[in-house]
Write a protein that binds this DNA or RNA. Structure first.
Lengths: 190, 190
DNA sequence: GTCGCCGTTTGACATATATCAAATAATTAT
DNA sequence: ATAATTATTTGATATATGTCAAACGGCGAC
């Protein structure tokens, strides 16, 4: 999972002016440093924590026929979590790997559920995040469904240049649904 | 948009035992019959209504380079709406076309927002629907990202046989991200 | 029933992308 | 710094899928 939006950020900023909420949240949350290569969550495990990236980068991926398919990239202020696993308590379909040393805020999914129940504004943030995430997925789906490899790469470059700058080709390639050789050739030609 | 789940259905059933809610809802909703070929929403317009299918079938699609790309199929009890357009009041990226004569329950997005504010259980249904929709999109994304055309067709056949039974090939093909000739050949070989 | 219209199938060929292999280039460890 | 590892580029070839065109089939209008 990932995705943040201006409106949501604002709502959160306002919400955190409430001292009761702030205290409850910081009691539940814990800052942790993760190292490059660490796994925040492994495919098949149940996702029990919600990770908010304060700095660094994380990649979501799953294994198919022995090779890794990248599903998402997360950077500062993005949320890392398997939505499916966290809400249904089923095995996660994907793993999350730390791409560079990252500072992360960790809250357990259970505690998060309590906080949402206790503070309606957090429930509202959750709902808006779900909407934004679904809309983001719709857009990504459309780009995979009928754009050529070149179009998909150019769209990524336009919308998410920080991915192209920071992440190795093989991960970008599988994110775009192509091989790294093809991606390399697309970049060479321009 | 589409997607319904057992848990959500149950919650709705319970909610409708509340007479106040039931009255408020039925005052806001209106049943309408649509004919094959009707457009519930046209690409570029703002989505002002939420349509719940009571019977029949609807297809979502958008135009790309002059050809139609199918994004979804909806059947009885599915909800038809452009999530992006309805929540952000922006032009809809997709159209919705009625595939066969359909009975539809229509509520305005504005009224729906009021009802959600008035009845927390409806807000809960909305949130759960967003989660379910996002998870459904994640799954569909994974299937488009790295499955072959044959695998995608077989997955569709397994998970949503009613689509394959009821819908013409050209729509299924663009839904799978392939041409109808390729789909025809996949079916011929088995 | 016959005609005409769609939707589907089939064929020949073009093209994008994958695969396998090797050569460079860039990072990391020693 | 040098070696060792890892990432990227490039080349030759294979394959899946697309494109264009024609034939076939079912089904409603008349």
């Amino acid at each position: 999972m990932k995705y943040q939006e201006a409106i949501i950020e604002e709502l959160l900023t306002t919400a955190f002016q409430d001292e009761t909420l702030r205290n409850a949240y910081y009691e539940a949350a814990q800052e942790k440093m993760f190292k490059k290569g660490d796994l925040l969550l492994e495919q098949g495990q149940i996702c029990r924590y919600c990770y908010t990236l304060l700095s660094g980068a994380v990649r979501g991926f799953y294994l198919k026929d022995g090779r890794e398919i990248t599903t998402s990239f997360c950077f500062a202020s993005d949320v890392v979590m398997s939505l499916e696993s966290a809400t249904r308590l089923t095995p996660s379909p994907e793993s999350f790997e730390v791409l560079e040393d990252s500072l992360v805020e960790v809250v357990s999914v259970e505690k998060l559920t309590q906080l949402r129940a206790q503070f309606p504004v957090l429930e509202k943030v959750w709902t808006l995040s779900m909407e934004a995430y679904a809309i983001w997925l719709e857009e990504r789906l459309a780009s995979l469904q009928f754009a050529t490899a070149k179009e998909r790469y150019e769209l990524l470059l336009e919308r998410y240049p920080q991915i192209v700058r920071n992440v190795q080709l093989s991960h970008i390639a599988s994110y775009l649904g192509i091989t790294l050789e093809t991606l390399s050739r697309i970049r060479a030609k321009g």
